[in-house]
Design a protein around this nucleic acid. Sequence first.
DNA 1: GAATGCTATTCAATATACAGAATGAGAGAC
DNA 2: GTCTCTCATTCTGTATATTGAATAGCATTC
Lengths: 270, 270
Amino acid sequence: MRDSLTSSPDHQLAKAVKDSKAPAISRAAAVLRLLGKSEAPLGLQAIARELGLVPSTCLYVLRALVAEELVSFDPDTKRYALEAGVLTLARQWLRRNEFADLAQPVLDRLAQTFGVTMLGVQIFGLDRIVTVAVSQSAGFQLSVQVGSRFPALISATGRCIAAFGDYPDSQLEARFRPLRWEDPPSFAEWQQQVAETRRQGFGIDEGNYISGVTVLAAPVWKQRGRPSHALVAIGLGSALKRNGMPELQDALLASAQTLTIQLGGKMPRP
Amino acid sequence: MRDSLTSSPDHQLAKAVKDSKAPAISRAAAVLRLLGKSEAPLGLQAIARELGLVPSTCLYVLRALVAEELVSFDPDTKRYALEAGVLTLARQWLRRNEFADLAQPVLDRLAQTFGVTMLGVQIFGLDRIVTVAVSQSAGFQLSVQVGSRFPALISATGRCIAAFGDYPDSQLEARFRPLRWEDPPSFAEWQQQVAETRRQGFGIDEGNYISGVTVLAAPVWKQRGRPSHALVAIGLGSALKRNGMPELQDALLASAQTLTIQLGGKMPRP
DNA sequence: GAATGCTATTCAATATACAGAATGAGAGAC
DNA sequence: GTCTCTCATTCTGTATATTGAATAGCATTC
């Protein structure tokens, strides 16, 4: 997901449209994502220009999306925005997502016990991870955080993905290079940390991703092979050291193993 | 949204596909909704049969949705299900939904003060309402409830929509008839309650929708005209009577009026 | 082990969704 | 007031998405 500065016709979209036998769907998804990213409702031209679509085609896409209640249309301003229909889909997804269900009480318990923010994330290969469950020790604006996306190899979860995913180094490096850290490790340093992660069973990011913030991640398997999810603990570095890192590490690892078993998965080495 | 018993090719979909200039999008939306409704992942044939689609067309739709990460595909079982991409869209919608943002603290306060479950809902004409924010006095599985849909005229919110929407009686009755209540009022009784709602400024449902459960709803306006949202309080009838119904009514009405002003709307009678 | 269901998938013909130009419809400049 | 610029929208021919049949895979049954 490259940030599009001002107006750069979407190149990836052009390819997706060409290859697909249902290009309207790629266009529709691109429109939805653009509307999601935008701070304010957008007009037809703005959308068409940003995505490199012909205005008339774009209009038909938008009309179809409005008819499906995925996009709202204000007849006065002629502006389009996301509609609540997307919420309904998300709710349905959450309802039958086993991992989110099973992880939630675990996250709540760990967040409360150790005073950290806990995430349950789903892994999408080497591409990215998505937050699917959240528990915060203080305050509770749950739903706004669920659904966040991050590059796969960033922070502690990234070290887990690299450690247990069995990817060739060349692929890892290609994905590693463009990452943005506040305090970036070198690829060599990072590979050592990945090796350490493989040994310990969980990953640590000590202020690399965000200065002063320590992140722990333990992988969860749904099938044998590559991990499908992870449990993540996020805390201020100082707070974590005081509050017993070792205990949190043990608890995190144990919870991840329990979840793996509940999901019918298999840890890599018995 | 008619419940499709077993296998009834979707009639509404057929019409939507025909009228639209981008039928693939209607098909895609129908597939997403079907996958959302389904308890388990579905195979290609099952989806095509249920929606009345040609299997090959359905395959292309599914492939496009998989490419957009809105649908997941298990190569072993050849089954399709909703993917986490829908979550990301929902999160983006929530982030820039003014009503949900403004309503959340209000709902939290009312839920805690009166020991009731509070909802913020968005109104879609005479068709339906969608829950966009939730606060429960005990326990907190927020996200799973957000996104729920109900028929527009059901329960207390329905009386508000009828009272302040200025719809012709014939339309109201057509929408009223098919509603399912546990203890259904007659249309005449209901119209009296609607009149009462117009007088009081908020709607009450005392055990009609669900026996033993009292629901209060106060409308919120985003523009002049028809109400766009509502605040809803749900409690056991007995608990509500003890805990000071009048106070809750006043607080609900006051909060709805405050929200209306914050959203830049206008109450009907100055 | 062949046969019979069921799947998912490919393929070739054609109905139609789409691109691009032409037309309306407003908003602002002067 | 008129002109102009930009926006949304309609119109029309053609590349192509969709269709329905044909193929291929994979269990289960006989």
